[in-house]
Amino acid sequence: MNGLIRAGVSCLRTGAAHYLTRPAGGRVLSAPARFLCASADQQKDLGTMVKKDKVVVFMKGTPAQPMCGFSNAVVQILRMHGVDNYAAYNVLEDQDLRQGVKEFSNWPTIPQVYFNGEFVGGCDILLQMHQNGDLVDELKKLGIESALLDAEKESK
C-alpha cells in the first residue's frame, strides 16, 4: 500500500516537472513523441497478446474476483461452457492497457473478448451469442467442446 502511494506521488512529481519544462520550449515535443512511441509498441504487443491464446478476455478484475458486473457476466458465461483455460488481462492494474485495448479493438468499453485473435465483442454480444447458440459453434471452431453440449447429451 505504501508503495502504491509513493508511486502515485512520484507520478505527480514527474507530471509537474514536465509541465514546468514546457515554457522552455525544447522539451515540449518530447512527452507527446514518447507517448506516441509507447502507444505504437503497445498496439503491437496487443496484436501478439490476442493471438497468444485461443480465448482472451480483457476485463476489470480477475476471473476469480471480477470487479464489474459486465466482466463478471463474461466470466460466468465462459464458465457455463466449461471454458476455464483462457487468458484474462486485468485492465484495472494497467491504465495504459485499459486505454490501449479500447483503441486496438476500436471498442469503447470493457470487457472485450477475443477468439483466435479475432475480436468477438463485449458482454452484450457474448450474452446474445450464448442465448442464440452461436457461442457453442464459435467455441467448436476453436476446438473447444462446450460443456453445455455435454450436459445436453447427458440429459437425453
Binding site: F70, N106, W107, P108, T109, F119, V120, G121, G122, C123, D124, I125, Q128, M129
Partner: peptide, 26 residues
C-alpha cells in the same frame, strides 16, 4: 452481424460514450 450493428451504435454515440461509464445495447 451483431458486432457491426454494435459498432454502428458506438460510432454514432462516440462523443457521448466518453462521458458514459457503462453502456448496454441491443
Amino acid at each position: 452481424p451483431l458486432l457491426q450493428r454494435h459498432r454502428m451504435v458506438n460510432t454514432c454515440l462516440a462523443e457521448e460514450l466518453k462521458e458514459i461509464h457503462a453502456f448496454e445495447q441491443k
